[in-house]
Design a protein around this nucleic acid. Structure first.
Lengths: 336, 336
DNA sequence: CGGGGGAATTTTAACGTTCAAACGGTCGGC
DNA sequence: GCCGACCGTTTGAACGTTAAAATTCCCCCG
C-alpha cells in the first residue's frame, strides 16, 4: 500500500506537497499538481484515514445507535432511514458507525466511551422518547449530536433536532379526505402517553374543528400497533350510532388493520370508507387498494441531520427544523 | 482528554508500562499494575483508537453495505439483523461501519476504497445475489470478507459464508403440517430465477415426495412479494379441482396474502386451511391467528459471521456454515 | 543589478500509540 | 563471587499524516 512518502519520492517533491495536492490543490503550481496527481494515480495511492484522523483529531464517523426491536413493534422504515443517513453522510465524506446501547441513562457510558476513544465525532439520535435522557447529557458533555425527533414533554429542546410535523401530516390527510367528500372522519391512535401520538392526534382534531367536522367520540386509542388493534378500533368507529365514512390512522399497521375490518364487513376500502395511514412503509403498497399514507421526507431528514451535525459550530440557539411530510394518495382514500 | 503520557507521568512510570497495563497486564508487577490502574481511572483515560490503529494497522471496523430498498420489496428483518450483527461485533471490541454502494461490479471501487483507506478491516456481505460479483473480486484482492447467503448458481463458493438452510426450513414446515393431519400441501414461491426460492421449493417438494404427498400442480410462482400475489396464488390453489388443505409460503408477506384470501372466502386460517410463512418478520405477530413461520437464527448468524471474519486466518478451505432455522408454531397452522 | 515580496515548496515537529530492543535488577548455580 | 537467565521496566523508533514555520524560487520594480 503506497504511502505519502512513496508518492513524494516518485513525483520528486516533498511529502507535504503531496498532502497539499490532495487537501489544498490551489497551493500548487499547475505543472507540479499535474505531476503529483499522476504519481498518485500511478501508485494508486489512498490516504490512510487513521493517520489523518490522528493528526487532525477528526474521524469523520457519526455514531448511530441501532435500536433493538422491543417485542413486535418493528421499525418498518428503519432500513430506508439508515440508507438515507448513510448516503447523506457520504456526500460529506463521512460514514455511519453503528453501535448498541442500553436504553435510558444506562446507555450513556457507551456514548461517552465511543466519543472519548475517538471512534466517532458525534451522534445522530433517533427513537427519541419522552424525557429522553440522552440529549441533556450529551449537551452537558459538549459532545456533538443532533436528534431525529423532538424530546416530547420538555419545555425546551436540549440541542438541535430535525423532526417531521406529524400534526401537519394528519391535517393533510384529514383535509384530503374532506376534499374527497368525507364528513365524518375517525382517528386511530395510540395512548396519549406518547408525544408523537399526541402530536398526530392534534393535527386531525384541529383540522376537523376548523372544517366544522365532528370529533367527539371519534378518536380511538389502540393499545398496541397491530392489525388486530387497528381492526378493533375501526370496528368501534363503524359500530357507532353514526358510523364514520373515513379513518385517519396513526400508522400503516393500524390502517391495514382497519382495512381488514372493512373487508370483513363487506365494505370497500376507498369507496365505502376511506382510510389513510402514516409512514408509507413497504406495507402500504403491498395491499389493494394500495394505502394512502403520509410519507416522511426521509432523504431530506437525513440530509438535514448531517447538515446540522457537520455544519459550522452551532451559534446561540441550536438548530431546530420541522419538516413537512407528504401525502401519498393511493386507492384507499378514493372520493366517496 | 488524558493521554498515555499524562497517565505515565501521574503514575511515575514510562508510557510503555501504561500501555502494557492495558494490553498485557501480566507483564507488570502487581503493585505497579495497581498504581497504574489507579492513575488510569483517576484521569479517566481512554486509549485513542486512531493512534492505536495507525500503529497496529487494524481499525476494528467491519464494513456493511446497507442495501437500498428497490421498489416495494422491503427487508422486514433487516433491523433485527443489523442489531444482531452490531451486538456480535461488539463482543469482540469491533463495530460496524455502514456504507452505500452501487450494486453489481460498479460497487467494487467503493469496497476497494474503504479498505485501501483503512476505514475497515473487512466486510460482511448480505443481499447476496445469483452470480454476485463481490465475492470473487474481494477474494482476488485478498480483502477479508464473509457472506451472509450463498452465491447461488456457482459451482464453488468463493470465500467463506454463513447461510440458513431454506430447504430444511420449508421441510420442517411441511412436516409440521403433515403431523397436523394435512395431506394436500401447496407451495407459494417466487420465480425459479432466484436461488433462494429454488432452495426453499426443494425443501417442500422433497418432503412431500418423501411423505407420499402430491406435488404436481401444487407449486405456484408468485411474480412479486405482495399480499395480492399471495392471495392470487392461494386462490389458484383453492380453486383447483382438488383444493389444498395447507399452504407453505416462501415469505411472510405471501403467507399473509394467502390468509387474506382464506378470510375472504369465509375459510378460517389454521382451521380450514393451515398456512406457514418464512422469516418471522414483525408481520407474523401482527395478524390473527398469528402466523406460523420459519425463523432464521439471526443472533447465531451474526455471531458466526463475526466469528469467521475475525477468527484466525482462514486455513485451506474457507468456512462454510449452514445453519438450521427454527419453526415458530402459531395459530395459523393448527391441526386440521 | 540588487532588493522586495508573494507564491511555491520544504523542513520541522507533532498527533498518541505500540513494537522491538535495550536496560537494570534479582536470583540461582557453579 | 562471578556469570547467565529471567523478569520488569524503559528507551528509541516508527506508523502516515498535517499544521506551522522556514526556506527557496521567481518575478517585478526601482
Amino acid at each position: 500500500m503506497a504511502t505519502l512518502k512513496q508518492v513524494a519520492a516518485h513525483a520528486d517533491v516533498s511529502v507535504q506537497t503531496v498532502s497539499n495536492a490532495l487537501n489544498a490543490p490551489h497551493r500548487l503550481r499547475p505543472d507540479t499538481l499535474e505531476r503529483v496527481t499522476r504519481s498518485i494515480e500511478l501508485l494508486n495511492y489512498r490516504p490512510n484515514r487513521n493517520a489523518r484522523s490522528l493528526r487532525t483529531s477528526a474521524v469523520e464517523l457519526i455514531g448511530y445507535c441501532v435500536p433493538s426491536w422491543h417485542g413486535g413493534q418493528a421499525h418498518l422504515v428503519m432500513d430506508q432511514f439508515l440508507h438515507a443517513l448513510c448516503a447523506a453522510a457520504e456526500t460529506t465524506g463521512r460514514h455511519i458507525l453503528l453501535f448498541t446501547a442500553p436504553s435510558g441513562a444506562d446507555g450513556m457510558s457507551v456514548y461517552d466511551d465511543l466519543h472519548a476513544r475517538r471512534l466517532v465525532d458525534g451522534f445522530v439520535l433517533s427513537q427519541t422518547e419522552t424525557h429522553d435522557p440522552r440529549h441533556g447529557w450529551l449537551k452537558e458533555q459538549a459532545i456533538p449530536f443532533v436528534s431525529f425527533g423532538r424530546v416530547w414533554k420538555e419545555s425546551t429542546q436540549p440541542g438541535p433536532y430535525v423532526d417531521v410535523d406529524g400534526a401537519g401530516g394528519c391535517a393533510m390527510a384529514t383535509r384530503h379526505l374532506y376534499d374527497g367528500g368525507r364528513r365524518r372522519i375517525g382517528f386511530l391512535g395510540w395512548p396519549r402517553t406518547s408525544g408523537l401520538a399526541e402530536d398526530r392526534l392534534t393535527g386531525w382534531r384541529d383540522t376537523c374543528v376548523e372544517l366544522g367536522l365532528p370529533v367527539d367520540g371519534l378518536a380511538v386509542h389502540c393499545v398496541e400497533d397491530t392489525f388486530d388493534e387497528g381492526a378493533r378500533g375501526a370496528a368501534s368507529l363503524l359500530d357507532a350510532s353514526e358510523p364514520v365514512d373515513a379513518i385517519v390512522a396513526l400508522s400503516d399497521v393500524l390502517a391495514l388493520g382497519a382495512m381488514r375490518e372493512l373487508n370483513r364487513r363487506g365494505l370497500a376500502a376507498g369507496t365505502d370508507v376511506a382510510v389513510t395511514g402514516f409512514d408509507d412503509s413497504p406495507l402500504a403498497s403491498v395491499v389493494s387498494p394500495a394505502l394512502t399514507t403520509v410519507r416522511q421526507p426521509i432523504d431530506l431528514i437525513a440530509h438535514e441531520l448531517i447538515d446540522i451535525l457537520t455544519g459550522p459550530a452551532e451559534s446561540e440557539a441550536p438548530a431546530e427544523r420541522l419538516l413537512q411530510p407528504e401525502l401519498i394518495v393511493r386507492g384507499s382514500s378514493a372520493p366517496g
